[in-house]
Design a protein around this nucleic acid. Structure first.
Length: 499
RNA sequence: GAUCCCGUAGCUCAGCGGUAGAGCAUUUGACUUUUAAUCAAAGGGCCGAUGGUUCGAGACCAUCCGGGAUCACCA
């Protein structure tokens, strides 16, 4: 990439050449580590020193302090940092060390000791270059005071560079690594929870001839051989339900969905969704499963159920509060919309200054009022239930109220974290609902669902009563790692192409 | 898509009409337990891009490129 080298880059290439002339391979094949940095730091004591006479550590040089005939450096491995002490006479290639830079990856063999000031360090008897770094990394110096507070000097914090060069970010900013380790643990805990209950992890098409299962605009692509348009999936739902039709009684998928919409703090065009469908269950069973799942994950990641998110203290302990959408609106606006006409609903929306442009049904207006007036206030985990029929085309009608559906959305810290239904399995009802969506589509609503004849055929074959759920994984990770931008929980967030 | 803010050395930033600056990093020298190591010296910049205003622009104006925040849409 860099055609024109700056001084620093030129110098490093000269050092590389110099090493080669000395017969050193700057890119050797392997190195036998015996210890991680933290394994040494956490177990070394003056009494156990005998066990540390012969250790081998490896990592990236993050700091160098040269004092003529002796030098210190810190190397960083996947676990942390450890100091290395190099002294002329103790290693044969001490003179080469001046060709080593911050950013190089080295292997060190030696014995562990404690310096005058008390820092546990490796006294090198062997020093090996494992990878000469040609492009300098930002230097961030970290100081720890007596109280253990760490101060970062000159941290690498330009967000654009951090996102575009996540590898550099990960090298320089150790706390970034933590977020992604937690992300991995959240997903693996969820997977284990499902697997233990016998639900099957499956994979369904990303490239779909029709898209459905959510309201969103898709990415469109083209298959050359078939000469047909394909859509990147916006949801997994319709394929997973086909598998329930096929006889699986519990299936889940954790994978990327794609939505061709705006990007901001909480939206990336590709994002990770978990969807699960369990036969013979309903949405009330699902609520108990989800609160138990999220409490389990929170305990696994935090060691407890209480978390801090921004200014908020949130308890992830089950059970979560349940409230109907109409009650939630009444609670936060004082307005009761039970049984209102379209005209009355419009009047209330206007009174509440809620923008309902393009909303043509009572249900859609109720959904809008809820989203604007009630949702932001739902800080502690709350199941909002009984959504209007019109905004829930894939959910079963409520068993005791035909105007609403058996559905919940889970809200935490004012944002949605999950969406679940008693899945609609009446094929005639489903056809009518999708036809209504088609009419909205014809009326110009680009996000209305398409009519998928094959999906309807599957329902005609017959799907058992089923509970289904979707959880946005990225947002769950944001919540449990206290990050306020989705870009900070994605290794490589979408960025505009550079010139 | 709209509004506001930002773009100066490898990194973090100052400079806001008058000869491009600091700290860290880099180079040279000194230093065999340092830790933002220290001490002395040096190098390093198309000031995001293109136009304009001006005797003179890093700074003021316009357009564009990139980023951030808020809003709209959604998960």
């Amino acid at each position: 990439m860099p055609q024109e080298l700056n001084d620093l880059e030129r110098r490093r290439r000269e050092e590389l050449q110099h090493l080669r002339e000395l017969g050193v391979n700057p890119y050797p094949y392997s190195f036998d580590k015996t210890h991680d940095s933290t394994a040494i730091l956490s177990t070394f004591t003056d009494e156990t020193a005998e066990n540390f006479k012969n250790v081998a550590v490896a990592g990236r040089i993050m700091a160098i302090r040269r004092m003529g005939k002796a030098s210190f450096c810190h190397i960083q491995d996947a676990q942390g940092r450890i100091q290395v002490y190099l002294r002329t006479g103790d290693i044969p290639n001490y003179d080469d060390f001046k060709l080593y830079d911050i950013g190089d990856i080295v292997g060190v063999k030696g014995y562990v000791f404690r310096t005058k000031v008390g820092e546990i360090s490796v006294h090198a008897t062997e020093l090996v270059m494992l990878c000469k770094s040609l492009s300098p990394i930002p230097i961030a110096k970290e100081v720890e005071d007596e109280a253990g507070n760490k101060t970062m000097y000159d941290a690498f914090q330009d967000k654009e560079l951090r996102y575009r060069q996540r590898y550099t970010d990960l090298v320089v900013n150790p706390q970034v690594r933590e977020v992604f380790v937690k992300r991995s643990r959240i997903i693996s805990t969820m997977r284990r929870y499902f697997d233990e209950r016998g639900w099957l992890e499956v994979e369904t098409p990303v490239l779909q001839p029709l898209y459905g299962g959510a309201s969103a605009r898709p990415f469109i692509t083209h298959h050359n051989t078939l000469d047909m348009e394909l859509y990147l999936r916006i949801a997994d739902e319709l394929y997973l339900k086909r598998l329930i039709v096929g006889g699986f009684e519990g299936v889940y998928e954790i994978s990327k969905d794609f939505r061709n919409e705006g990007m901001d703090r909480t939206h990336n065009p590709e994002f990770t969704m978990m969807e699960i469908y369990v036969a013979y269950k309903d949405v009330y069973w699902m609520m108990e499963m989800v609160e138990n799942l999220l409490e389990t994950i929170t305990r696994e990641v935090h060691g407890g159920t209480e978390i801090t998110v921004g200014e908020q203290q949130i308890s992830m302990k089950a059970p979560f509060r349940r409230v109907t959408m109409l009650d939630a609106i009444k609670e936060h606006t004082g307005k009761d919309l039970r049984g209102v006409s379209l005209e009355e609903a419009k009047a209330i929306a206007k009174e509440l200054h809620v923008d309902i442009d393009g909303k043509t049904s009572v249900g859609a207006i109720i959904g809008e009022i809820f989203g604007t007036k009630a949702e932001p206030n739902l800080i502690q985990p709350t199941y909002v239930i009984d959504h209007p029929l019109e905004v829930s085309p894939l959910a079963k009608t409520h068993r005791s109220d035909p105007s609403v559906t058996e559905r919940f959305e889970l809200f935490i810290n004012g944002a949605e974290f999950g969406n679940a239904y008693s899945e609609l399995n009446d094929p005639i009802d489903q056809r009518e609902r999708l036809e209504a969506q088609s009419r909205q589509r014809a009326g110009g609503d680009e996000e209305a669902m398409t009519l998928d004849e094959d999906f309807l055929h599957a329902l005609e074959i017959g799907m058992p009563p089923t509970a289904g759920l979707g959880i946005g994984i990225d947002r769950l990770v944001m919540l449990l790692t206290n990050q306020d931008s989705i870009r900070d929980v994605l290794f490589f967030p979408q960025m505009r192409r550079l010139e």
